[in-house]
Design a protein around this nucleic acid. Sequence first.
DNA 1: GTGAAAGCGCTAACAG
DNA 2: CTGTTAGCGCTTTCAC
Lengths: 349, 349
Amino acid sequence: MTQPLPQTGKKQHATIREVAEMAGVSQMTVSRVLNRRESVKTSTRERVDRAIQALNYRPNLMARSLAGGKSLFIGLIFDNPSNNYLGELLVGALNRCREVGHHLVIEDFSASSNEKDIDALIERLGSAGLDGMIVMPPVSEDEFVLARLRAAGLAPVLIAPRETPQDGVSVAIDDVEAADLVTQYLIDRGHQRIAFVAGPTAHSSARRRHMGFTHAMARSGLEMNDALFAQGDYTYRSGMVAGDKFFSLDDPPTAVFASNDDMAAGVIAAAQRCGMRVPDDVSIVGFDDTAIASAMWPQLTTVRQPIAEMGYQAVDLLAKFLGTGEDRNAEHNIVLDVSIVERGTVRRR
Amino acid sequence: MTQPLPQTGKKQHATIREVAEMAGVSQMTVSRVLNRRESVKTSTRERVDRAIQALNYRPNLMARSLAGGKSLFIGLIFDNPSNNYLGELLVGALNRCREVGHHLVIEDFSASSNEKDIDALIERLGSAGLDGMIVMPPVSEDEFVLARLRAAGLAPVLIAPRETPQDGVSVAIDDVEAADLVTQYLIDRGHQRIAFVAGPTAHSSARRRHMGFTHAMARSGLEMNDALFAQGDYTYRSGMVAGDKFFSLDDPPTAVFASNDDMAAGVIAAAQRCGMRVPDDVSIVGFDDTAIASAMWPQLTTVRQPIAEMGYQAVDLLAKFLGTGEDRNAEHNIVLDVSIVERGTVRRR
DNA sequence: GTGAAAGCGCTAACAG
DNA sequence: CTGTTAGCGCTTTCAC
């Protein structure tokens, strides 16, 4: 280290007491100012604020939580540590946690394959003293695990669940609308022969994306037929197979909407192998904006979910329902807007 | 929610006092047992342990940190929230934090493009009261930012830095050895004509990987020539170009080592376009095990860094140097072992 | 409007 | 080896 490190690690943070002294008030008044309580005279508040500035005071979250007795420990259950979404969701969740002094405890579900493992893990979660949990896909789609979680009295907030839970709490996007949006995006750019690569019908997200595509196409009176449809399974490989089918047609599509990025990448590989240029000969869009979307060439135009925002909202939602009980009537299922990431695989005709 | 939620959110956790009462000892004794202090009679310890079990007691981390006064706030600086590594590193870092009661504060550097932004951000970091920070690549390679950080008195632990800092603290892998390892892996499988796709020479990791390749090849007395070398820039596209070069040779290589996964994916795309089968006609290995490695088809055999472990170690290292000062002599630069992830792109000849 | 007192759950520093 | 006494920095509950 170039600079000698401070011996204690803890910088000499100003405490609420020093602020109080400097402002000539009691700790309580400072506390009230910090917590935006109404009952503080404006002149007093200003004096306190000035002291806070001068001392560069930042409240100690741990002391606050301890005293307040209302900071939450939230478990975040994920399946795969190298999940693309994990980092972003964590960023959002952690940000909200910091704002309100909650704590995130991450829990890896990926090793739990059989029923016994799952029970053991839930047992562990239960006794870990967590106040609630955030459940990421694909665990959030696993009814078996969810039922176990609920039975254990743990309050799960589901991220992008299979179906909007009637009696649960979730944060998700509207797949139908999002798929409709990209399809319309293609239509707006002059495409008429648009092929669709569906995801596995077992995933409700796949079904919803298909529905969105159908809506948009029907709205514009565009043709949909079996030749321009391929059943994929969300893998690169199935995208390649779909591409091979489309591009060997006498009258190939001018655009392909693959309902996830991996399949879109597969379609592109197939196109290139068939000697078609992307986006000159054929335009392609994906869905999800996973890492592959910007790793490939040309980079994929796709739909992006606001993952960090979802993490933020999930923590917030959980806090509301686990809080004092005042916000019990808050919306249970939050739906966030998606956006289209325009890169290099779509061309105006 | 199916189950009525507890009104308070905070489960009625047992406190150290209840444990003490139940075991018929003082709080201090319980505390000593918890902290694995030697000076507790075995019989007493057992009594305490039993009470802990019975009450399902878990120490309150916040109270512990507050009282101990030695919990650290650690900033984690990253550049891109959808970085593949971020999630995993966060998992490891968070785990260690939980074990010792530290706190992670994540900081997004990605918006800071110009010098002014960077200064503003560092100012913010400094006044946020962080005790130290973990810096992820590519920020950890940015000497300008690092210098600023050090000047601000913030203690940075670098993840995979450009060069092992002489007067700094870092966690990294040995790129030379890792590259040597995969190359040898290829040689062991009977490959003799092995091509190499280099990364941008501005990255020291790229230079080190090249060095490792050279070592291994030389050790086995294998030929390296310009025809079997391509200068890439870590992008998919440059991998494709390299592949086109190799596969148009009269005597194409039987294996290609691309020094990152994106380039390896590009090489594979080129191979497929040239009508070569992977891995039957040509074997390909990458480096990093990013998302694309398992998204493509066939899935890429590649080198994987122990990212979560790196996060864990980074927190640990920081804590050591920011701690009581006892561990100041600990190793400053930790080097972790890599592993080869065997998937579908290498074939025994 | 504001303040004083009493902890939140735990550990440091000293006794014994 | 174990217990006692003080807090950590903040918020709560009551007074004024």
